[in-house]
Design a binder for these strands. Structure first.
Lengths: 146, 146
DNA sequence: CCTGAAATGTAGTCGCAGCTACACTTTCTG
DNA sequence: CAGAAAGTGTAGCTGCGACTACATTTCAGG
């Protein structure tokens, strides 16, 4: 966000196969927000409420970490919660969760389609999904409907 | 690494479609190490030396950040460097770079094969590659040789 | 061979995701 | 309905990646 343009040019006269890294770094925090939104939506749908402890368990972190991250989501307008009552999603949060869920499915389906075992597909999709651009997502969709 | 087992069980009596997140989080730091190793190898191969400033430019970060991260790589036995001389890779570092490079190619090829435009494929692969397990990688390879 | 620009290194700050430890509600149960 | 167990929240610490600002070293031209 705060990192300005800075062309990122390759070495001047050298024919380096410049690959643009760049994003990836700041992407991490939004990846976590996505995971939380998705999980909270899941919990709300399946259990009717999303408690910090459940979130923590499912993500494999301490409950304190879960609570702090939920606080960040609240700050960012994605979630709401009141002390000792569960966590809920704002409209923005729900929208995010829906997008993430759809993307997740698509990524898993694509992986399966190219022969990745179910177990690995589910597992890897968790990490991969956060880095799939809209263009790539569209290509996945087209491929699956070939 | 320091996070112990902690079974990560789903809710006891609830039929939640438990998806294992878990790793992902600590994975981030090794993803960065991978990027650096790969880039340093690239620079060494194409320009003959890897200077902090070049690394920083290519990654889109400040030179201070690059230097600090290189320090971490040194701590982890992946790189070496002496003040004002460039950065080099240890054997472990080279091995890592080679693995990463190969994996990157495979991911890009797979993406292209399912119809992702070249530009997007290169770009997304950068983020995706760090989350592709060996099993998935093997599946990609098999698919490409269909 | 000397000097100034460019590169390199160092210090100190911030935000965030983790953790443990402790304090405080809620809720369950005897 | 009181006490214990479970859940929730707060405080304080760490590591890491990112930054800016400042200090130092190299090295190329004059």
């Amino acid at each position: 966000m705060s990192r300005p343009p800075e062309p990122i040019l390759g070495l001047p006269t050298e024919p380096t196969q410049a690959r643009r890294f760049g994003k990836t770094r700041t992407a991490q925090s939004s990846a976590i927000a996505e995971d939380y939104a998705e999980l909270i939506a899941d919990l709300l749908a399946s259990v009717g409420e999303a408690r910090p402890t459940d979130i923590a368990r499912r993500l494999g972190v301490s409950h304190a970490t879960a609570i702090k991250t939920v606080a960040r989501l609240k700050r960012e307008g994605l979630a709401t919660s009141r002390p000792y009552r569960g966590v809920f999603l704002t409209e923005a949060g729900e929208a995010l969760a829906a997008r993430v869920k759809a993307r997740h499915r698509l990524v898993v389906d694509l992986l399966r389609a190219v022969g990745v075992p179910a177990e690995a597909a589910e597992q890897d999709a968790e990490g991969i999904e956060h880095h799939v651009s809209d263009v790539t997502l569209a290509a996945f969709e087209a491929y699956l409907q070939r």
